[in-house]
Design a protein around this nucleic acid. Sequence first.
DNA 1: CCCTGATTCGC
DNA 2: GCGAATCAGG
Length: 173
Amino acid sequence: MSHGWTEDRVDSLKKLWIDGLSASQIARQLGGGVTRNAVIGKVHRLGLTGRAEPSRPRRAAPMPPRPGRVAQARPRTSPPPRPVPPPPARPAAARFDPALALDGTATAATLGAHMCKWPIGDPGSDAFRFCGRPAPNRDPYCPEHRRVGCQPRKAAPLADDPIVRRVLAGLAA
DNA sequence: CCCTGATTCGC
DNA sequence: GCGAATCAGG
């Protein structure tokens, strides 16, 4: 549910793609269960391929020899090859990351690459912390803070601007 | 292992 | 038209 490439979503897709966001980033931002594959598929169908490529500046092989997988029909329904027998035997030592134990306790020192970098508190204060919760993929924030961070800031009420207030006050007077 | 886009093809 | 599975690569 919640799918279908509505004009709105296609517009967002185009914009984000042209802006240079990766397919997975776009997929995440569009939300609604859209995968990066879906995004890529749509991008191609729209003829939007090609732009500043983040992760592959040059294509090494033009890919002439590439007949492999078509020949050996993809086994989607038949083969459950299960050569994976013993998973256990490692109860110990799941590494404990103290920064993940509590929200808002990660410091600049303990903040890892996969932790939410949402700032908490006064950056100048000793008490300043980062959220520190798990941040999936390459995202800087955890899912919760990502949403907040992406919210198109609702236009800050003009009247909140001190300068505007003074001008308005002056006009009134 | 994380990621990137590209392609194929059943639906 | 859509997108999962896959490929090919950084």
